[in-house]
Simulated assay, not measured.
Amino acid sequence: MIGALAAEALDEAGFAVLTAASAEEAEVILAQEAIDVLFTDIDLGGRDGCDLAQRALRAQPGLSVVFASGRSRRCHGDRIPAGAAFLAKPYRLPHLIQELHRAAQGRSFS
């Protein structure tokens, strides 16, 4: 449900949004579509968002990545790629939109 709300807010903010229910489904999309920003939760239930991001960056090296997690960035250590943005949950939708705009422009700061 949170993912659907985030996707709706991003769509309303002018982003073209592609959604996936799992890391595996996201990889299929990434193999077929060139995207600017990957927004993913770290804890996906199967393979995690860090693994997804590493694979996505190998396929699309210019990709910006924004992670979300209920745990602090430090908890994930060096698994988060350098330059990736991080949103601690719970996050506010305006903050998400701002971070995605930054990432789309290649300026992730979190």
Rank of each mutant, 00 (worst) to 15 (best):
G14C: 09
E27L: 14
D11M: 03
F15H: 00
D11K: 02
I2Q: 03
I35M: 03
A85T: 03
I29T: 13
A26T: 14
Q32E: 12
A23W: 01
R71W: 05
I2V: 13
I97G: 05
H76I: 12
H95L: 11
A68V: 05
H101T: 11
F67A: 03
G45D: 00
E8I: 06
V37G: 00
A6G: 04
F15V: 03
V28T: 15
H95M: 13
I35W: 15
P90S: 14
A104Q: 08
A31E: 10
D43L: 14
Q105K: 09
D78C: 03
L93K: 06
Q54L: 14
K89H: 05
G77V: 09
C50A: 15
A31G: 14
V37F: 06
T19C: 08
Q60E: 08
L38R: 05
E27W: 05
E99R: 08
G3W: 02
S69L: 10
R102F: 10
G70A: 12
L44S: 08
E27Q: 13
V37W: 15
L100F: 04
Q54R: 10
H76D: 12
R79A: 11
M1G: 15
H95R: 13
I2T: 01
C75T: 13
G83N: 02
R47S: 15
E25C: 12
G45V: 15
A31F: 12
A21P: 11
L38K: 06
A53M: 10
P61Y: 13
F67P: 00
R71Q: 09
G14S: 06
V28A: 15
G45Q: 09
R74T: 06
A53K: 02
